[in-house]
Simulated assay, not measured.
Amino acid sequence: MKKRLKLHGFNNLTKTLSFNIYDICYAKTPRHRREYIEYIDEAYNASRLTQILTEVSHIIGANILNIAHQDYEPQGASVTMLISEEPLLSEEDLVTREQPGPLPDAVVAHLDKSHITVHTYPESHPDNGISTFRADIDVSTCGRISPLRALNFLIHSFESDILTIDYRVRGFTRDVRGRKHFIDHKINSIQNFMSRDTRDRYQMIDVNVYQENIFHTKMILKEFDLDNYLFGTGVDELTPREEREIRKRLQHEMAEIFYGRNMRRLS
């Protein structure tokens, strides 16, 4: 067993896990697009998001210190939750190992002077029927544990078409000899902390800056079933030509989000 790091005082490393989560759909008519925005605002309003984050904080073993939440006009919502640690784990469990973390029914963590935030951004293209729901989630912790322990829970809680995930360790802590440590656990890739079913479902790309303790993973679903992307209509209501056109629009939208740039549309 690797010798445990003996620190001088509190672990001052700040570890932040950030998600950009995207769900894409096609809403055929202006009425369908309005209904899509209304559906998203109802399903993910500030009250509902507060419930979700409250459950997340309980699952990871945190005390809620303060909650701020807001619904916006014309759409969108935000919740910010300040949390502190609740000592539920043994000393050995506090070590973050590079392996898949627990799934939703078994997530536990140890947090101090930390926060969880979520912001939503539903929007709809005025002409081509593409509608997008984006949720930004941040879990930031100070102390020995990494928020990577909550990774699989968050992925499974927000089943999405596209995810961009960032993990960064900032600051430093000192050992008992006064030597600085800029990271306190091994990590080569965020992917190594994901469950097998997630790795099987998504195509992934890493962009990591190891010397800066910055890790970035982009994910997009491998399989594309058009019926899962239609709001207010079904595949059986489309002509073959409409089906091909809508499929192209959706895949083009997803590719632009995944690669982070505008792309020329192929006819």
Results as ranks from 00 to 15, higher is better:
Gln211Tyr: 14
Val209Asp: 13
Asn152Pro: 11
Ser78His: 13
Asp23Tyr: 08
Arg177Thr: 14
Arg241Val: 15
Ile190Asn: 00
Met81Lys: 05
Pro30Met: 07
Gly171Trp: 01
Gln99Val: 13
His216Pro: 01
His110Gly: 11
Ala62Asp: 06
Tyr121Ala: 07
Tyr36Met: 07
Cys142Lys: 14
Val139Ala: 00
Gln211Asp: 14
Thr29Arg: 01
Leu5Gln: 09
Val235Ala: 09
Asp41Cys: 13
Arg247Met: 15
Leu89Lys: 03
His115Arg: 11
Gly76Phe: 07
Thr217Ser: 11
Tyr259Ser: 08
Glu159Gly: 05
Asp112Gln: 14
Ser78Gly: 12
Cys25Arg: 08
Ala68Phe: 15
Pro104Thr: 04
Phe224Gly: 01
Glu73Leu: 14
Tyr44Ala: 06
Val169Tyr: 04
Phe158Glu: 07
Ala106Pro: 14
His156Pro: 05
Leu94Phe: 00
Arg244Asp: 13
Ser47Met: 08
Leu221Ala: 12
Arg48Trp: 03
Thr117Ser: 14
Pro30Cys: 06
Pro30Lys: 07
Ile187Val: 04
Phe19Cys: 09
Ile37Lys: 02
Arg170Tyr: 12
Glu38Asn: 14
Ile64Cys: 08
Asp112Gly: 10
Ser140Met: 10
Glu98Arg: 08
Leu49Asn: 10
Ala77Arg: 11
Gly143Val: 01
Asn188Asp: 12
Phe158Val: 07
Leu65Pro: 03
Gln75Val: 13
Thr164Ser: 12
Ile257Pro: 01
Ser146Gln: 01
Arg4Gly: 07
Leu226Thr: 02
Asn228Val: 00
His69Tyr: 15
Pro104Leu: 03
Arg199Tyr: 02
Thr29Met: 00
Thr96Pro: 04
Met81Asp: 02
Ala77Gln: 11
Asp23Gln: 09
Pro30Ile: 06
Ala46Leu: 04
Leu148Asn: 00
Tyr167Arg: 02
Asn152Ser: 05
Tyr72Asn: 15
Leu13Cys: 08
Asp105Gly: 13
Pro87Phe: 01
Arg134Gly: 00
Arg149Met: 05
Glu123Pro: 04
Gln191Ala: 12
Glu92Ile: 13
Asp161Trp: 00
Phe182Thr: 14
Lys186Phe: 13
Glu159Cys: 04
Ser90Asp: 15
Leu65Tyr: 10
Val79Asp: 09
Phe258His: 11
Ile52Ala: 11
Val118Arg: 08
Val107Ser: 12
Asp41Trp: 02
Ser18Glu: 12
Tyr202Ser: 05
Glu91Thr: 05
Ser195Gln: 04
His216Thr: 03
Val207Gln: 11
Tyr121Cys: 06
Tyr22Ala: 02
Ser90Gly: 15
Arg179Gly: 05
Val107Gln: 05
Leu111Val: 10
Lys180Thr: 10
Glu242Val: 02
Asn192Met: 08
Pro30Ala: 06
Lys186Ala: 11
Arg261Lys: 15
Gln251Lys: 15
Lys180Asn: 13
Thr141Ile: 12
Tyr44Ser: 06
Leu5Asn: 06
Asn20His: 06
Met204Arg: 03
Asp127Pro: 03
Asn12Lys: 15
